[in-house]
């Protein structure tokens, strides 16, 4: 029923969702959710400058430019909050909006010279992704986006598996991490590096805003469903893939942007988890609360009977 293109689209979406969910869990735990948003906006000037300097749409240059901007955002936020005694969220807000504004100015300045579509950067065109295939020696090796997102996905998987212990300690207890000889700032910047990498690689296919959704909505959904980090990672990946699939179906039905629909579906899944989650869901909590009340009431009645 689904054509080959549809399979590619869902596969790309799932790969992006997996990469994002893996690093996103640590962003959420470290209360840096908005940093994903900040980085995904701030990479714009990096991409434009890479275009202008090399004059090519080579993905390698774009990745380097964007990574540099992502790290710059994390760094400037750090500097402003440390040397200006500014709240870190304000520092982040100032930094990324500034870089984004510069990016938009560069785009409009060189709009004739650079074949770059801002809309495409922001919302992505996953529909077009299957058309851009790699051909080598006359053979078709599948869409380019599959390779890119696939490689980034493997890189993220390696990063999270190899650095699992360090990331975990840094996320839950930075003080402990420092005392057992784990460099908190090294792992912070490594994480930022991988967030930038993921953001940029996902850009072309799904756009900036969806990256933000995929970075933090599935991990938060998982956060509501479990208390263990390893399960949280697994559930987040699952929810991400489910959103990719659901988003594709929703977009086909509504005839709208697929990436945006994926964000919407992930939001719906989160709402379901928030309401119906077994332990942390609103209904479950409500029920637990009522049970305690009933219990207290019973005990009170029993007490008054005994006294009388």
């Amino acid at each position: 029923m689904m054509s080959m293109d549809s399979v590619w689209i869902v596969l790309i979406g799932s790969l992006v969702a997996t990469s994002c969910a893996l690093v996103g869990c640590f962003l959420v735990l470290r209360r840096l959710s908005m940093l994903g948003d900040a980085i995904s906006h701030a990479v714009l000037p990096g991409i434009v400058v890479a275009f202008m300097l090399t004059g090519s749409r080579n993905i390698g240059f774009m990745l380097v430019g964007a990574m540099a901007m992502g790290m710059l955002t994390a760094f400037l936020t750090d500097v402003l909050s440390r040397f200006g005694k500014l709240q870190s969220d304000a520092a982040m807000g100032v930094t990324f909006t500034w870089l984004f504004a510069i990016g938009v100015i560069l785009v409009s300045k060189f709009t004739g010279m650079v074949d770059l579509d801002v809309d495409c950067v922001l919302y992505g065109e996953i529909v077009l992704a299957p058309l851009d295939v790699i051909e080598w020696g006359g053979r078709n090796f599948g869409p380019r986006a599959i390779w890119l997102t696939g490689i980034v996905c493997v890189a993220n998987l390696l990063f999270v598996t190899l650095g699992y212990k360090q990331l975990k300690v840094c996320a839950f207890d930075a003080g402990l991490a420092a005392s057992i000889g784990i460099s908190v700032s090294l792992w912070h910047y490594l994480l930022m590096g991988f967030v930038s990498l993921t953001t940029v690689a996902s850009f072309e296919s799904v756009g900036a805003i969806l990256v933000v959704a995929m970075l933090i909505v599935p991990p938060n959904t998982a956060y509501l469903l479990t208390d263990r980090l390893s399960y949280m990672l697994l559930i987040a990946v699952g929810v991400g893939i489910l959103s990719a699939l659901g988003g594709f179906l929703l977009a086909t039905w509504l005839d709208g942007a697929i990436a945006a629909a994926m964000a919407v579906v992930s939001g719906v899944l989160y709402t379901l988890a928030a309401l119906l989650g077994p332990r942390h869901g609103v209904l479950a909590r409500h029920r637990a609360h009522r049970n305690i009340e009933l219990h207290v009431e019973e005990a009170d009645e029993l007490g008054s009977e005994l006294r009388s």
Partner: peptide, 12 residues
Amino acid sequence: GMVLSVFFGLGI
């Protein structure tokens, strides 16, 4: 972050 991205996704 969630409100931002999900609402914006809905808008797009």
